[in-house]
Design a protein around this nucleic acid. Structure first.
Length: 201
DNA sequence: AACGCTACCAACCGCCGGATT
DNA sequence: AAATCCGGCGGTTGGTAGCGT
């Protein structure tokens, strides 16, 4: 599938991390035209702005769904969410989007990452323990990996995004006086949305 | 202080299925 | 009915921050 773009305007397609400028273009476009029709979005968003959005529709969709959407919840998975993920995964397997629908604000990508990097790892560790028949001690694998897991859990892990420019208080937020040299990840969603508001949209 | 390792996350890739022509 | 287009999904990878030695 994934047909090759035949249009010359697609000759150069940008890849890699999104910049704040690109985020703004995308947010602006969706604010004005709504979600969906990603391919045409990708086409017209380039014309829509003085800046060109040389991204594929897929890339735009992914960026919006996983990061820019205002209702995306960021930060730690709560124990309740973790439990739910495990339950639903036991039920449905790797149907991440399906699972995500039961976790408001969480994206399939986030859940998938969470599963693969944490839960799956701990399950494997648990299996290894069992294989070794190790009764070495009741190292709490699974819940107990939870010594890590739950501590990696809600309370004490770092907020996913902690941009230097935003201290959590929008009143004190200072908009930059220029668009930073495309290191988009410096910016939090709050920054971007506030920029959006400043733009008057 | 420097280096190596690990964990985490954003983003890309390829495939699939539904919609449209 | 067949071909094409497009959005969605799951798997994988690359970059990097954080931590330990």
């Amino acid at each position: 599938m994934d047909k090759k773009p035949c249009n010359s305007e697609y000759a150069e397609v940008r890849k890699g991390p999104w910049t704040m400028e690109e985020d703004l273009i995308l947010i602006n476009y969706i604010a004005n035209h709504g979600e969906g029709v990603w391919n045409s979005l990708a086409k017209s968003a380039g014309n829509f702005s003085f800046l060109c959005l040389k991204r594929t529709g897929k890339s735009c969709r992914l960026r919006w769904l996983n990061y820019l959407r205002p209702d995306v919840r960021r930060g730690n998975i709560t124990p309740e969410e973790q439990l739910l993920i495990m339950e639903l995964h036991a039920k449905w397997g790797n149907r991440w989007s399906k699972i995500a629908k039961h976790l408001p604000g969480r994206t399939d990508n986030e859940i998938k990452n969470y599963w693969r990097t944490r839960i799956q790892k701990h399950i494997k560790q648990g299996e290894n323990m069992n294989e070794q028949g190790s009764s070495e001690q009741n190292i709490d694998h699974q819940e107990g990996t939870s010594s890590q897991m739950s501590s990696a859990g809600p309370a004490d892990t770092i907020e996913t995004y902690s941009p230097t420019s935003y201290n959590g208080n929008m009143d004190n937020f200072q908009a930059p006086n220029f668009l930073p040299e495309t290191n988009g990840n410096i910016w939090s969603m709050e920054d971007i949305w506030s920029m959006q508001l400043l733009n008057g949209d």
